[in-house]
Design a protein around this nucleic acid. Structure first.
Lengths: 186, 186
DNA sequence: GTGGCTGCTTGATCAGAATCAAGAAATATT
DNA sequence: AATATTTCTTGATTCTGATCAAGCAGCCAC
């Protein structure tokens, strides 16, 4: 299962994969378990082997602001906290019981030291996590939902529409109407 | 002038600065000159010594979509093209005659090889360029403009309001009304 | 089962920003 | 200097999505 995680990043040979398996930790996390807490400095990347996880921040009013929804075979982490080593503004938690891989920064440094192939992690760390920044304010609610249907339909099997709506920065009412409209159009 | 560029990234000793000065190229660019063209793979970071630059992409309809405005003493580049070594979707051009420093990826690798201090460039590359991602769709036009007034007022001295509006993803009419409203409030 | 909670839908209203339109001011060109 | 072009402002209208409100369905606990 660890090989999957590497395959999503680039090409690695058998020796690299063996090095990786020695560094990575396999964690069984319970529904609701927190992997990164607001105020902590992110020290690891995570890879979702199976299950589901989500990232969110709390607004002053206490509302959950969802910034990421993660399915199987996706890496997830807080890029800004990790890269700049500053306290996280967000939480990352498992949404259902999950198996995740955890790879610390120290491990990445060790891996890069042992094999140049692991430089490929730089481009992973440099990129915003899955889909999160696709949703700038130029997209309409229909386009946002169409993007989910097109690229990440599995989200709809796992997360309630309420959370999808929060992730897309639209209200549940608007999402409901968008779905009705698209269903009618088919 | 090269030292300024390093100071914005972290702490470097005299030997590091000397190494840096040997790698960096000083370029005099004319108004309108293109530093990165759509379709090319970004190979350099730029630092604006003086002048002004901007980043933009062309939508299918041909409209200019401004994604970055850069002033003196700011680094600018295309993070996604640079990190992933994929073709750029955007252009970077000088807005006025400018002096910029250019630092290639190869130079960064050379510098890192010669001094561990240059690892600090990783966190620069990993971060979205100045202010660009502050404008997610949770901010109102007033908040967006207030952010500019607070953090980057110099933009207003150099770029026409039309471009500021495009950068903020609002119409020029809305920007004009926001300015009128804030001026009245003072 | 009944009651209560949560998630989802549907309707009515409201507000904010885009669009459409015109004119004024500033800048560039000749 | 005169004209042309671009930028900025102001007004009227429209439209999209948020908000407010109510009702329904599914699910859990008791």
């Amino acid at each position: 299962m660890q090989a999957n995680a590497l395959d999503t990043i680039g090409t690695f040979n058998a020796a690299d994969k063996a090095l990786f398996e020695k560094e990575v930790k396999i964690r069984h996390v319970d529904k609701g378990e927190v992997l990164l807490r607001e105020g902590m400095v992110a020290n690891s990347l995570f890879f979702n082997v199976n299950g589901a996880a989500f990232q969110y921040s709390l607004s002053p009013s206490g509302a959950e602001n969802i910034t990421g929804l993660y399915m199987a075979n996706e890496w997830f982490y807080n890029p800004s906290s990790l890269a700049a080593q500053t306290p996280s503004h967000s939480f990352i938690a498992a949404y259902v019981d999950s198996i995740v891989l955890e790879l610390s920064i120290q491990s990445i440094h060790t891996l890069i030291y042992k094999s140049a192939a692991f430089f490929q992690f730089n481009s992973l760390i440099a990129q915003p996590t899955t889909g999160a920044y696709f949703f700038d304010n130029t997209l309409t609610p229909i386009q946002k939902y169409a993007y989910i249907l097109e690229h990440r339909p599995a989200l709809l099997q796992v997360f309630p529409l309420k959370m999808i709506a929060a992730y897309l920065k639209i209200t549940p009412e608007t999402l409901s109407r968008v779905r009705e409209k698209l269903a009618r159009a088919d």
